[in-house]
């Protein structure tokens, strides 16, 4: 039962992440990315990050921090960084 709920959570979390990127404060898609990364090897993690950056990142921001695609980088870091943890503890 729990297994099924956890698996069904992936599309729901992904939808929340994409909608949150447009409608909700930035910590919502970030939290969704973290939650997805803990449970799934999901392509949606960097996709949400890329979506946030495509919408909101100014192309020539002032300062290094302002011009870096932080959410895309965070998505890639989460997806790859938690892969050893996922492969160690999770079974399919």
């Amino acid at each position: 039962m729990l297994y099924r709920i956890a698996n069904n959570a992936r599309p729901l979390l992904a939808a929340l992440g994409f909608l949150g990127a447009v409608l909700l404060p930035p910590w919502v898609p970030l939290l969704v990315m973290v939650l997805l990364a803990f449970r799934f090897a999901a392509w949606e993690i960097p996709a949400i990050g890329l979506f946030v950056d495509l919408i909101w990142l100014a192309p020539s921001g002032e300062g290094l921090l302002a011009s870096l695609p932080l959410f895309t980088l965070a998505g890639l870091a989460l997806m790859w960084g938690l892969e050893p943890l996922r492969s160690e503890f999770l079974t399919r």
């Binding site: 090897a41 960097p46 996709a47 990050g49 890329l50 998505g75 997806m79 892969e83 492969s87």
Partner: peptide, 24 residues
């Protein structure tokens, strides 16, 4: 199974980076 998962992640990474580069 893990090898397949990693390959999928690699493809996702390449696509994300490619989309970002193409956008620029």
């Amino acid at each position: 199974d893990r090898r397949k998962a990693r390959r999928r992640l690699l493809i996702a990474t390449v696509i994300v980076v490619a989309l970002f580069a193409l956008d620029i």
